[in-house]
């Protein structure tokens, strides 16, 4: 049982934005995708979610090609948190989290739905907003509401034992320090509970701290994959991000901690240099 993408390629505007990427997420593990802007991280996540219509390659969910599952059955097995979740109408927080239970209508009792919704809201720390209109929340708070919705969707193990998957596209981008860690700790907990979790992250230290495996992407392809200690090396970070770093092992966990050297930041023109360049 797994969520497996093989040789995935996507072209947009005539350019390849994902090139022959293969990735398998197994139950119980948290996999982080990292890479610079435009590396194809979100495209790979969307491909695994079945969002791209012009996708080459195959995506297999729990032993069956994604296109052979019915949409409702896919929704029972995996939830997706988009990068910028939207809401067309003013819904209450409770109503949005409740939407996560849509695929389980008729499959769970009222008490089970209620328990999943309250539990998911608690895990995402949005319980105190339950009655609030979503339009009155900050961007980070709204992001947590949608995270709660995805948790509610795959809240309990499936009765037939099929594995569940959670795909999160930059879940921490809009969050404060404490909630960045809290959300990833929850995602980690979802993995420990038996689900496979795939997370797109920008912060290498968060990836190093929470991921079982890190997948490094650059220019539409997968450059390296393995444990944080194996993949996140100074040489790789230098070649992919063009940034000089120093890496130490966290004494408590043995996981890498990455420090960026100030003089090693990518060679961009300073504002003054850019002004002079533009004036020429």
């Amino acid at each position: 049982m797994s969520l497996k993408g093989s040789e995935l390629s996507v072209r947009a505007g005539g350019k390849p934005i994902l090139r022959r990427a293969s990735l398998e997420v197994r139950p119980g593990e948290l996999v982080a995708i990292v890479g610079p802007n435009g590396a194809g991280k979100s495209t790979l996540l969307k491909a695994l979610a079945g969002e791209n219509s012009n996708l080459l390659g195959s995506v297999v969910l729990n032993g069956r090609a994604l296109k052979h599952w019915r949409a409702e059955e896919i929704a029972l097995q995996r939830a997706v948190l988009p990068q910028s979740p939207g809401l067309a109408f003013p819904f209450r927080v409770w109503d949005v989290v409740e939407l996560g239970r849509y695929p389980l209508r008729g499959l769970a009792s009222g008490d089970e739905h209620h328990a999943a919704i309250t539990g998911a809201m608690d895990a995402a720390d949005v319980t105190r907003f339950a009655e609030r209109d979503c339009r009155t929340l900050s961007g980070g708070e709204l992001h947590r509401v949608h995270f709660a919705r995805t948790l509610a969707q795959i809240w309990a193990p499936l009765p037939d034992g099929r594995a569940r998957f959670l795909l999160l596209d930059e879940p921490t981008a809009a969050l404060d320090l404490s909630h960045q860690h809290a959300i990833l700790a929850r995602a980690r907990g979802v993995a420990s509970d038996g689900a496979g979790v795939l997370v797109v992250l920008h912060d290498l230290n968060l990836a190093a701290a929470f991921a079982d495996r890190v997948v490094v992407m650059d220019k539409g392809g997968i450059v390296d994959a393995g444990t944080p200690g194996e993949t996140l090396t100074t040489a790789l970070i230098q070649s992919v991000w063009g940034v000089e770093t120093e890496i130490v092992r966290d004494p408590a966990t043995g996981r890498p901690r990455i420090y960026v050297r100030p003089q090693g930041i990518a060679k961009l023109r300073t504002i003054g240099e850019a002004r002079a360049f533009a004036a020429e």
């Binding site: 929704a75 029972l76 995996r78 988009p82 939207g86 809401l87 939407l99 996560g100 949608h146």
Partner: peptide, 12 residues
Amino acid sequence: ALGEAEAGHLGV
């Protein structure tokens, strides 16, 4: 209301 892609992810 969440968007077409998100509604699809919910099995709609």
